[in-house]
Design a protein around this nucleic acid. Structure first.
Lengths: 162, 162
DNA sequence: GATGAAACACTGACGCT
DNA sequence: AGCGTCAGTGTTTCATC
């Protein structure tokens, strides 16, 4: 589903809400140059359309004891659709998997993983990934540091027509 | 910096706010079983401590015209700290780079990229990445589908002591 | 898109346990 | 230390133009 055409105000609303999801509607309205009621109507419409999927608090994993972030690159033996889906569903079972992307090319899946310690991560890799059916190989890389973490979409790149 | 010890209520607050960053304080308080004022005090403390980094709206990239998501795996010639930092800073210049992680192992950097189309993505890879100093190789993989996108931390894994 | 009004939420001060 | 009650202020949200 593609959205109805967005105007400049909508883009600015999205930009601001992506930066600060808890901004009050009044301040948001002020920032985009309209008054509160139409601003709220626009936000609701963007939510309805699924353009705004949800709002979330971004937490600091390190401060909460998630000392390990890692990527797992998975190759499967079979790339038949049913087999891809089967693997995906299995990967999603684990709370350790934060993000699961199906890729084109040599690697079939890239998993972003978070764990409290290496032991838990390793046991996930061995018992849940390597041991899963159809898995040919799993290569893991620990994240040493993350410079920019899921910062949000670069809306300026797509808002040129508004 | 490590945070002060969190109790069960704090963990539930984090869990709820990660799910719904725009929940009203009153409803949040109700969900975690206390009244609004102490609940708000806890939230503010969690923000102060940097445990809650920020709040954001999660947007649907596809509906906004970001048809391409891809990962770029970069190897450098030199892994000296200054060279790693130099590359990182350069990568962060581009709005296309959504996430930039320094890795251990063969691959030095993994970049999560978003672009409106393949042309823009390709031009980024060629002009900004491959042409950058110290870059040995860049391998890219397009994301065919994302099953679970940066869903947030699996707080249950770390909250066992509270 | 703006105005005004009513319902609701936020957030301070204070007392309690 | 931390929770709860109360009350003033600001915000959300609806009807209306």
């Amino acid at each position: 589903m593609r959205a109805a055409r967005l105007d400049h105000t909508d883009w600015r609303i999205l930009q601001v809400l992506q930066e600060d999801g808890r901004i009050t509607n009044i301040e948001l309205a002020r920032k985009v140059g309209i008054t509160a009621p139409p601003c709220l109507r626009r936000v609701r419409a963007l939510e309805e359309a699924g353009i705004i999927e949800r709002y979330m608090a971004v937490l600091d994993g390190r401060k909460l004891g998630f000392d390990v972030t890692a990527f797992a690159m998975v190759k499967l033996h079979s790339q038949a659709e049913a087999d891809l889906i089967a693997f995906e569903e299995r990967a999603l079972q684990s709370p350790i998997v934060q993000e699961c992307s199906m890729l084109s090319g040599e690697i079939d899946f890239l998993l972003r993983c978070v764990a409290p310690d290496l032991t838990r991560f390793q046991s996930f890799i061995i018992h849940d990934l390597t041991a899963a059916p159809n898995v040919e190989s799993v290569k893991t890389s620990l994240v040493i540091r993350t410079a920019k973490e899921a910062a949000g979409l670069p809306l300026a790149l797509a808002a040129e027509d508004a």
